[in-house]
Design a protein around this nucleic acid. Structure first.
Lengths: 222, 222
DNA sequence: AAACTATTCAATAAATTTATTGAATAGTTT
DNA sequence: AAACTATTCAATAAATTTATTGAATAGTTT
């Protein structure tokens, strides 16, 4: 094998992996699976895809070895194959957010149209945790919280927040988080809480970003 | 704009960026541009593409805002738009190297078919630098060395190594590096040097990996 | 074993990406 | 201004990716 042939094969392989990510639905699936494992049906519902279609995209990811499966009864659960998959997604996300004004604008327009809040980065949250009392609020669905969450976070899914917000302290600062920077549950939570007189801010990033940095988490052993 | 519409647009934009990278030639171009800027002709030559073809791939990268241009006389020089582009490439590369046994195998087969040497990681090199004397040898073409290189590295392009190796110390350990883990100049250098009685090893990663970690470099101001 | 359920498969048409070729363009040098 | 050079553009055919639909499959429950 000569040098050119070798190179061609290396880049060919890398391109295969990159292609397996290069689709809006598959990027969304990867982001979702960063929260934990999900069945095909659940993935289809979350991403608004017909099941057969979701399944096809999952096959593409499986062939590229970005996801693993785990059969339980009639259900097949998909999960990310390893943490490098999330790292690659994160790098692409950061490239996107920095480079494409469109995305920034989309995010801002959407957030500002309903709410207009500042957010706190993971680093800033760590500083706050060191210097004083902060309540961390996880507003993702209960099942995602159960799969893994930031250590000491309180779980109140966004749908239950209105009835259950009395469980939260009125005085201490509340940082709400969800799946990632594009997830709007945290924005909704901040809107609800601030209106009711709480002191709430959203975390810019999501649980997987926290976890990948090896910060303290509580995960289910399943 | 409702939630689903917002999500669709975000992932659509991210997929556009990802697609712009999802091609073997474009991945190779990105890796090359991580060394510095190059004209279309140079890029075409390095990647073994017809000029018109290279130009088309560069347009794709330009539209996605992964590269910038800089006209000088008749030549147009392309460069990476910012360090996040290299970070994304690096994340994909690491995902690839870890996940796809094929690539590992390709790299090993190719290296072992001609040479079979161990390599040193950036971290290991840093330790060596702390604990004793090491000569760092840059075997990339002179122009790439001039654009930027590891601080205190000596430049001897691989083509000139046989005649010029007497410039190198026989006693101290030599670490040779080039463009990145898929670049084989460093392997060739190690083979030549060890045969001649030098103590040489290759650096696993390349100059851009060193630079992105904000380790000491010498760069041209151009 | 039959009925059921979640998922995958297969076929197809439409959309997108790619390589190839030759011409056009934007700037430089004479 | 004419000749020249590097790069881009435009058109096209071939290859690949995608969504859609209905059927098939692998396993579970009755």
């Amino acid at each position: 094998m000569d040098k050119r042939e070798f190179k061609d094969k290396v880049y060919e392989e890398l391109a295969k992996i990159t292609k397996s990510m290069a689709n809006p639905h598959r990027l969304e699936i990867i982001e979702l699976l960063a929260q934990g494992d999900f069945s095909v049906e659940q993935i289809a519902e979350h991403t608004n895809l017909p099941v057969a279609n979701a399944s096809q995209h999952l096959q593409v990811l499986k062939v590229a070895q970005l996801v693993d499966i785990n059969r339980q009864g009639n259900f097949i659960y998909y999960r990310l194959a390893n943490s490098n998959v999330f790292k690659a997604w994160k790098a692409l996300r950061e490239l996107g957010v920095e480079r494409i004004a469109t995305i920034e604008k989309l995010v801002k327009d959407f957030r500002q149209s309903k709410f207009k809040f500042e957010s706190v980065t993971i680093e800033e949250l760590l500083q706050k945790l060191e210097s004083g009392k902060v309540t961390i609020l996880d507003v993702r669905p209960q099942t995602e919280f159960n799969k893994g969450h930031i250590a000491n976070a309180i779980s109140i899914p966004i749908d239950e927040l209105k009835e259950r917000m009395k469980e939260l302290p009125k005085r201490t600062e509340i940082i709400a988080y969800c799946r990632g920077p594009f997830c709007v549950y945290a924005d909704e939570a901040v809107a609800i809480l601030n209106k009711a007189g709480y002191k709430a801010t959203r975390l810019e990033e999501g649980f997987p970003d926290w976890q990948i940095q090896e910060l303290p988490v509580e995960v289910s052993l399943n």
